[in-house]
Design a binder for these strands. Structure first.
Length: 199
DNA sequence: CGTTCGATGCACT
DNA sequence: GTGCATCGAACGT
């Protein structure tokens, strides 16, 4: 039983979506095969008043998907190396999104391992730990930007999985608005990233 | 264990 | 030219 999340799921307050995305399954279908994992860590980025949100400086070419309808993927390149994937939330014209930070691998560990390391062994809990790692494992790049998560090769499904209790804490890796506890993760899950924010 | 630091490319001013 | 919602190798303890 795999139900693709509908647009109404995303058209809600971002903190609600961030919490309810926990336990859902991010799926990417490519010619190489299907890869997927259960979402175990998310972060909310909410509106132009959130200094850490890419919409903080108003609409630009890069953040355009944030201003579009909910349920759309917002992918961008960070630090010149890593692609990060978000799910756009709220309503059109209200720029907000949920960053997917970590997955517990489900489908096609072999394919994900090949994408990550070219074949060398990686601990399964490290395979999709961290936003840059999970996009590499799933083969998500800039060409997946602005895809419709409700109806495309990149989607989020409800498979009836239960991830366990979650906890909220400060967002990771940002330099502003560090205090807002908008990071949601599954307590004790080994696929969650533990990287500490730097000064 | 822990921390530091370089890689790397694109959007933005 | 600057700054990043990162990662992992290379150190030190």
């Amino acid at each position: 039983m795999a139900v693709v999340l509908a647009r109404e799921f995303y058209a809600r307050p971002t903190l609600t979506v961030a919490e309810e995305l926990i336990g859902k399954v991010l799926v990417h279908r490519t010619p190489l095969g299907v890869a997927s994992g259960m979402i175990v860590e998310t972060e909310a980025y909410i509106g132009e008043d959130d200094p850490a949100c890419h919409a903080a400086c108003g609409p630009t070419r890069r953040n355009a998907p944030l201003y579009g309808p909910p349920g759309i993927a917002y992918v961008y390149l960070n630090y010149g190396i890593h692609y990060l994937v978000n799910a756009v939330t709220e309503g059109e014209g209200h720029p907000a999104a949920v960053l997917i930070r970590a997955l517990e691998p489900i489908d096609n560990v072999r394919l994900m391992t090949r994408r990550r390391a070219g074949g060398t062994t990686i601990d399964v809990h490290r395979l999709c730990r961290g936003p840059g790692n999970l996009t590499r494992a799933l083969g998500i790049t800039l060409s997946e930007n602005a895809l419709d998560l409700t109806d495309s090769k990149l989607r989020i499904e409800d498979r009836g999985l239960v991830a366990g209790p979650v906890s909220w804490g400060p967002r990771i890796g940002i330099r502003v608005a560090v205090k807002r506890p908008w990071r949601c993760s599954v307590v004790g899950n080994r696929s969650v990233s533990y990287r500490v924010t730097r000064a």
